[in-house]
Structures are given as C-alpha cells and as structure tokens.
Design a binder for these strands. Structure first.
Lengths: 334, 334
DNA sequence: GTGAAAGCGCTAACAC
DNA sequence: GTGTTAGCGCTTTCAC
C-alpha cells in the first residue's frame, strides 16, 4: 500500500501539498491538485483513516450499542441511524449488549478506546451506570436510544411509552375487559418500566386496580416471553385479555395462545407493543402499538451529529409518538 | 483524557514500561505492573486504539458489508459473526449495500481506509468487482458471505443453494404439482442465481421443463417480491404451487395469496427459502428450506480469523447444508 | 500556493 | 526488567 508520501513524490510536490489536495483543505493550485489526483489514482492510493484520526483527533466513527441486532426493532433503529451518519461521512461501529450491563460496559469501553466521535446506546439499566457516567465525564457525546436514564444529563430519543401502553390498555378496557394480563420483561429496562407503569396507571384510573395474578414479568428473551405467557395463561383465573410490552413478548404470547388453543378475539384479546411485518400475517391480524423504529435511530443519529457539530443546547428527551393500530385481535369476550 | 505517558509518570516508571504493563507484552515486574495498573485506574486511563493501530499496523477491526441489516437473515449472520470476532478482541464495522454495487464499493473503500484487518462481504454481484479485486490485490483478507464469486480467489461461506432449491421443488413435484411457479430476485445475486438454477434443473429432471410463464423474477425488496408474486398469481394459467427464493419473496407471496383469497395448501402450495420466526405463526405454517444464518456468520468470522492468524490454505468454498422443513403449506391440489 | 517540521499516542526494537 | 528512541501516516502550524 502506498502512503501520501509516495503520492507526493510521484506528483512532484511536497507531502503537505499532497495532503491538502487529497484532504480538500487549505490552498492548492489547480495544477498541483490535478497532479496529485492523477498520482493517487495511478498508485491506487487509499487514505489511512487511522493516521488521520490520530493526527486530527477525529475518527468519524460512531459507536452503537443495542440489545441485539437480531431483534427487528433494534435492527430497524440501527439501519435508520446508519443511514443518517453515513450520509455525513461517519462509520458505524456496532455492538450487542444482550441486555447485560457487564457486556454493555465492555462494549462502551471498547468503543471509547477506539475513539469514536460519539456513542449511541440503548441502556440496559435505568440507573446511570459508571461506564456511561465515565463516557459523559470524558466528554464523549452520548445519546440514549429507546430508553432514558435519569441524571445522566444527555439527550435521549424514546417513544412515549406510557401513552402507548395506556392506549393499549384503554382499548382493551373499551371492550369491557377487566382481567387484563401483562407480559413484560423486567423494569430494569427503562422502556419496559414505563410501559408497565402505563399499564398499571390505566388499570388504576379505570378503577380496575392492579393484581399480581395478572402480571407475568420475565427476562428479555423470546423463550422467556413464551414461558411467561404460557404460565400466565394457565393460571386458575386466566386473564381475558393480554398486553405485551415488546415484540418478543408478543411472539411468546401468540405462541402460548396457539399452544393452549386460545383464539383471539373470541377466547382472549391481545394488544402487542411494536409492529412487525408478521403481525398482519397471523390470524387474526394483531392490534398493536406501533413505534417508529427507524425514525428513532435516525433521530438519535441526528442528535449526535448535532452535538458533534457543536450544539450545546441543554440535553433533552425526545418522545416520538406511538400509534395504536387496531386490527383484529381484540373484542368482547365471546 | 490521559495518555500512557501520564500513567507512566504517576506510576513512576518509563512510558515503555507502562505500555508493556498495559499492553500485556514483554517483561514487567509485578511491582511495576501493580503501580501502573493503579495509576491507570486512578486516572481513568482509556487506551487509544487508534494510536495502537497506527503504530502496530493492526486495527483489530473487521468490516462487514451486508445487503441490509433489517433483513433478518443478514441480521442473524451479522450477529453470529459479531459473536465470534468479539470473542477474539475484534470490533465489527457494519455497512449496508442495499444490493447496490456502487454502494458496496463505497462501503468497501471506507472500510479499507479505516484499515480493517479483514473484510466480510455479501457480494451484490457474481462477477468479481473492481473494488473486491483491489482489496484482494492489496492483501486485505476477504471472506465472501452467503454468495460466492468466481475468480476472486477467496474463501466463501455459503449454503448449498442448488440442493436446497431442488429439495423444495422435488417436494412440490411429489404432490404431483407440475405448474410450479418461481418468485425470485434477480440472478445478478449469486445465491439467487443458484436457487433459480436449482429450480430449473429440478423441473427439467422431472421432465416438466421450464416455462417463462411460471417465473416471476424481480428486484430484491419486499415490495417487489409482493408485486411479482401478485402478478404471477394473476396470470391466466396460474401456477398450482410456488417456490420463493428468499424471505422477502416468501413474505410477498404470502401477502399476495392472502389478497387473492388463495389458501394453502388447497388452492396453492408454497415452499419458501429461509426460515423465520413468523413462518410457524401463519396459517398454515410454512414449509421452508431453512438455512443456518447465524452459523454462516460464525463460520465466515472463523475463516477470516484463521486468515488473520496466518492460515494460507488455498481459498475454498464452504457449503453449509440446508434443511427442508415440512410443515403445512404443501399438498395435492384440492 | 507550497514546503519544512513538529507532533498525535502508541509499538517495538535496541541498549543498558 | 527497564528506559531510550525511532517511527506508524497523517494534520497542521508557520515560514517562505
């Protein structure tokens, strides 16, 4: 591989001039520029961004830490963010945390030692983790995605979880359901905590009240969602309706219902959180609270770029709206 | 942020000793090591991998170019690869090509200027592209994922597309279907080309022969898959069975069938390529050719790591097996 | 407009 | 074992 020195030599100019021509900064005469470009072309010169990053202090890389890219919600967010930052010449460094704080810590530290210009993370905990605090303290621009963390003092791009959950529960209440079950992963996950709270508040406001017997709170995997839903549906006083707080939980609930021979909406109603492609393919098509996953990623990317660009407005939480999409999985009990 | 010099100073040792202690190479006394580690801890020292990469010539980063992370197949492969390389201290740089050669080129060049140690790409074309050739010529280890390219002289990790397609078609032939339609994206995409060929060969071998009226070949998006399937099912001589060559095409076919009121397996049979979660949730559950997406990514990661480790065995193509999973979407015509 | 030269923070000889 | 020192390939003053 050739360096900028080689290019300069064959173009008969100094290394500095070659750098200016290739880097597109400073003054270079048209003639030199042409010579340099020709030389670069001829040598198959590929700039070394590592050296550039070291010398300039800017890596043009942005780190993203999500729970798991295999979750379509995160995949869509990653894609959205990727589109936005690449358009501005940045590269995406991706890491999975598996919703595990220790793995998240390792990911954040790896990304920081790679000197990413900024970090977007889907935090696994609602409490400010030391590694996130450290990043902020060190001045690394940080944007939280999908979940907010109090007291960290950084931008957060989320959806309106409480309102979304409420709309789901109220829809169910509208069909006179009272025993509305909840299938969710744990409240350590901030977005889930808000959705759980939204569920409880809506139940409380309707005078129905919350009941432990109606809640199945479990881990964040597909398998756990399925197991929790199955267990909930087997309880003596089975709920007549279900609200699930994310797409893995919804998947689990649909499987559990099928395994038990429960058909929506006659035997039981269901509202899921997060709309995926398959929700309209099942019978009945699912009523869901949809959230703009790609937009979430785009907005996080934009916020981060703004910070990199020097924006100093005080950190704020953006809440994108959710939308209740009524399809066929809800109705009065037969 | 503090540098290794700061650490050395507060630990009262030379910069080189601090580097050895932190880098874990060379000889360092236990006492010095402790002092250095304490100093690093106290200063909140974060190593600068950019400088390390420049000095050592090794970035510990691996670039991955897929069509689109939002495609669950690629997401699974990315996850598999990510797991493998992170375990070996490498970071994943991800880019989407949207199955566009120009975007692929830009991605590959960006990744190369970032001096990734190696590259894994899902090639958008079966012909050796200049940018891929250039990477190979420059000595960047390259592994092809999901699709092979002749004449590039690099490892390729794929599935046995021809056998997979054949098993699908033969399954359909076994139910006495003769008008078996094909819904696929174009043959520019090497894996699709092999699946199309597998379909045609199986048809030919059965003495059925290929017919343009049975083939709907289109672009790589969900929307195009849907449109193509719809168009195919509306032809005067409608096929009695369908073989779709990837999950987007399958999705489109299922939607099109639903829109036309065609129910499997009575009105039409369907075998899809690639098994996703939702295929068992629809009615009937889909018979599919499943492929080990995550394993594909893992294997690609392993191959690349082997090359980075100095393996010099001549490039080979690995073909992982597919599996026909018989569920409920096929049967004799009612 | 262009060149010389000093780093960026680290690795890796090499001498002690 | 430890320190000294010369780069890695760029960016970026600062003279000319």
């Amino acid at each position: 591989v050739s360096t900028i020195r080689d290019v300069a030599r064959t173009a008969q100019v100094s290394q500095a001039t070659a750098a200016r021509a290739l880097g597109g900064y400073g003054y270079v005469s048209a003639a030199s520029r042409r010579a340099v470009e020709a030389a670069a072309e001829q040598l198959g010169y590929v700039p070394n961004d590592v050296a550039r990053a070291l010398a300039s202090g800017v890596s043009s890389a942005i780190g993203l830490v999500v729970g798991d890219v295999e979750n379509p919600f995160f995949a869509a967010a990653a894609r959205g963010m990727s589109d936005v930052i690449e358009e501005h010449g940045h590269t995406l460094l991706l890491a999975n945390s598996d919703e595990d704080l220790e793995r998240e810590r390792v990911a954040v530290e790896t990304l920081r030692s790679r000197r990413v210009d900024g970090l977007v993370v889907v935090p696994s905990s609602g409490t400010p983790s030391p590694h996130l605090r450290a990043a902020v303290a060190a001045g690394t621009p940080l944007v939280l995605l999908d979940r907010a963390v109090r007291g960290l003092g950084v931008d957060a791009v989320t959806v309106d979880n409480a309102a979304g959950a409420r709309s789901a529960v109220e829809h169910l209440l509208g069909y006179d359901h009272r025993r509305i079950g909840l299938v969710s992963d744990g409240p350590e996950i901030p977005s889930s905590a808000e959705r759980i709270k939204g569920y409880r508040d809506a139940m409380g406001d309707a005078g129905v009240g919350v009941e432990a017997g109606l809640e199945a709170i479990t881990g964040p995997t597909r398998e756990e969602g399925y197991a929790a839903a199955l267990e909930l549906l087997r309880r003596p006083e089975r709920p007549t309706a279900l609200f699930t707080t994310n797409n893995f939980m919804t998947l689990g609930a649909v499987r559990a219902m099928r395994d038990l021979g429960l058909h929506a909406p006659d035997d039981i109603s269901l509202v899921g959180f997060d709309d995926l492609e398959w929700t309209t393919l099942v019978d009945p098509p699912l009523t869901v609270v949809s959230q703009p996953a790609a937009e979430l990623g785009q907005e996080a990317g934009r916020r981060l770029l703004a910070r990199l660009g020097g924006a100093t407005r005080r950190p704020q939480r953006v809440r994108l709206p959710t939308e209740l999409i009524v399809r066929g999985s809800c109705g009065p009990l037969a």
